[in-house]
Write a protein that binds this DNA or RNA. Sequence first.
DNA 1: AAAATGTGTCAACGTTGCTGACCAAACAGG
DNA 2: CCTGTTTGGTCAGCAACGTTGACACATTTT
Lengths: 200, 200
Amino acid sequence: MPAMPDQTDPKPADQKGGAEAQMGAPVGAGRNLLFLREEELRLAQDLLFFGYRDFTAGADQILAELGMGRAHHRVLHFVGRRPGITVGELLGILGITKQSLARVLNPLVEQDYVVQATGRNDRRQRLLSLTPKGEALERRLFERQREWVMRAYREAGPVAVEGFRRVMRGLMGPEARAQLERLEQPAPARPGPPPLARTG
Amino acid sequence: MPAMPDQTDPKPADQKGGAEAQMGAPVGAGRNLLFLREEELRLAQDLLFFGYRDFTAGADQILAELGMGRAHHRVLHFVGRRPGITVGELLGILGITKQSLARVLNPLVEQDYVVQATGRNDRRQRLLSLTPKGEALERRLFERQREWVMRAYREAGPVAVEGFRRVMRGLMGPEARAQLERLEQPAPARPGPPPLARTG
DNA sequence: AAAATGTGTCAACGTTGCTGACCAAACAGG
DNA sequence: CCTGTTTGGTCAGCAACGTTGACACATTTT
């Protein structure tokens, strides 16, 4: 598991059994101090549980028809985001073990969704890219989620969207933030198709 | 994608192609059509993946030490949120099958984290509640996540938090929204301890 | 030549979903 | 009272996706 940030000890900050959720706190007492009452945090837990579940539900449905799972989607997503990514980099992003990745990556290669190319600088590397077939599936999954997220974004409005992004970023650990920054930067100049396609 | 959405937002990665976000255009008013470009949606996918993973990481760690998983946490969470909840209601909230629930619920009962009480009106029902031991564990998990979320909330600011909530709500399907509404309403007047504790 | 790195693979295991089938207790209505 | 439905429990089997440990191989680096 990457991104296991240092978590301070779980001090029982203001456990009162929940009754204080009803007494309105003096909210004006300093704006850098958010009053995160019990109920507010419970709500955050609920929102993340339900929201993430339904966010993934649409793509999961498509994947299930193809005998794939969410892990396959993640590979397609991040390979499509960074064509020519190495196995090691992908492992770092996903935060799983090599064996776990192999179980989804190998079928994807065998079924012609992903191609492996030998690295030019380092021939040990296997540079991963999507095939046209893989791109098509990834796009199909993307569009499904796009519509879902678009609806939520539209309903919430631009200001809310920006807030959503800020909070989600804050929920990420330092390692994930670094990964995200790397992903957000433009891919390192990969004009042509990858070299040395490996048939095997 | 420009990163680091600090207080000011200099990045063009907004919902409308970018420029007017800097010009302070009447966002949210005139345009009901948000331009959700490719990269913006990719970012949303990334944020949800990384954010949700790291959000749960802290509690997962505690749970692993006790030989439990995320599913146990969910049961503790929702039972703690609605003491006296029936098995059927819990199934509806979690959206899993009875067998899947049984596999986590039964150990929780056996290990004295959850108690089952026979319903008064309908004696078929098993009203679930947390034992003191269960409440303690739930609170420990809660506090861990609380600190994590609190940090994100503080960094993002109150406005962002509200936006986060709106978007997450929008990501939920209609059924989940109904569940959430039910959860947000005050529990139906459950002053005393549950009746008729079932020893077996 | 030796060490480190990148990748692949085998074996075994755990958690958490699923389906299908069946059973038992309790309620509801004739 | 009898029947049908609801609520819940359970068994058996399966799949997806994560884990660890160990080992193998090619390649690069020292």
